[in-house]
Write a protein that binds this DNA or RNA. Structure first.
Lengths: 154, 154
DNA sequence: TGAATCCCTATCGAATTAGTAGGATTATCA
DNA sequence: TGATAATCCTACTAATTCGATAGGGATTCA
C-alpha cells in the first residue's frame, strides 16, 4: 500500500508552493533546493502537474511555477491520483478507473467478498485524501510553526 | 496504493481454506486449482504463511495446509502485513515498522504536516483491515451464497 | 517401494521506479 | 542583440521489485 516518490514529492512541493515566501513564480531550482529533491526529477514531476492543470508555469528568465488553483480547491486525493493512479488497493475496487477481475477468478464481481473489502479500504483512503485540501495543510503547518515559535520564546 | 498479488492471493487462499468442503488438510494442488493461481507460486506463499504461524502444514501423502488459528482470531490486516509489509503509505507513518524521514527533508518528524496526513491514511486503512477477520469474510460469503441460491430458486 | 505431498533455493524475464542526461525553446535584461 | 536563466521535451539507464518458473530434496503413507 505504498506511495511512490512521485506522489510523495508532488505533495511536498505543492505544500511548499502554498507556503513559500519570496517572489513568484518559484523556479524548479529553488523548489529542488528547499525540498531536497533532485532538480531534473522534479522537472518531470512539475511537468506532469502542469499538464494536469494543478500548477501553471512561466518560461524564460524569472520564470517558474505557481499554483493554478486556490489551495482550498485542491485536494491531496486529486494529486495522488494524478501521480500514482487510482487510490484503490485493487483495480477491481477503483471507482475512478474500474477494471474487472479476470472472470475465472471472480465470477460474479458484485458478490466477491474480497472486492467488497477492498472497496471499503478504498473508501476509507478516499475519505481522508478527498476531504484534505492544500489549504488545510497550509493552515496546519502555519499553526504548528506558530506553536514551535512560542515554545522557544521567539 | 496498490496491493501486491501476494497479498491478494494470500487472502483469497485463506478464505478458500475457511470455506472449503472436503477432506483436510487441503493440498496446494487443490488450492491452486480452486483459486486459479500458479501452483509453484502458491507454494511460496503458503510457505510464508506457515512460517508466520497463519497456517500449519502436513507433509507426505494426503498432506496439505489448514488454518493454524480460529478464523475469528485472524485479521486481514495481519495477513497483508506479512505478505506486503506495513500498511502505511510511507515508512515514516508506520506504527509497526517505523522508519524516520531523512533528516534533511523533514527536520522535526513530529511536526511534519505530510507525515500526519499519511498517519491518518494509515489509521483509516488499519481500522478496516484490523477489524475484519476471516470469520467475518466467511460469514459474508455464506450469506451472499445463500442469497444467490434463493434468487435462482435452488 | 512408489506416489503424492510439502519444502527449499535458485533463476529469470518483464515491468516499474527513480533518477540522469542532453539539448531545444522561450523570455528577460543589460 | 546577445548572454543568461528558466521551462520543456525526449531518450536513456541502473537498480529493484514482481510474478512467476524450475528442479530437486525430504517426508509420509499405502
Amino acid at each position: 500500500m505504498k506511495l511512490s516518490t512521485r506522489g510523495d514529492y508532488a505533495t511536498r512541493v505543492l505544500l511548499e508552493l502554498c507556503t513559500a515566501e519570496g517572489p513568484r513564480p518559484v523556479s524548479v531550482t529553488d523548489l529542488a533546493n528547499r525540498t531536497a529533491i533532485s532538480q531534473k526529477y522534479l522537472e518531470q514531476i512539475m511537468g506532469q502537474l502542469r499538464s494536469a492543470g494543478i500548477v501553471r508555469s512561466e518560461r524564460g528568465l524569472h520564470g517558474g511555477y505557481e499554483l493554478a488553483r486556490e489551495p482550498d480547491g485542491l485536494t491531496v486525493g486529486e494529486v495522488i491520483r494524478i501521480m500514482d493512479g487510482p487510490l484503490a488497493p485493487s483495480p477491481c475496487a477503483s471507482r475512478s478507473a474500474h477494471v474487472p477481475c479476470p472472470a475465472y477468478r471472480c465470477a460474479v464481481e458484485e458478490s466477491c467478498v474480497m472486492r467488497s473489502l477492498w472497496l471499503e479500504v478504498r473508501d476509507a483512503i478516499a475519505e481522508v485524501l478527498d476531504r484534505t485540501t492544500f489549504g488545510d495543510l497550509t493552515r496546519r503547518q502555519q499553526s504548528s510553526l506558530a506553536l514551535s515559535r512560542a515554545m522557544y520564546h521567539i
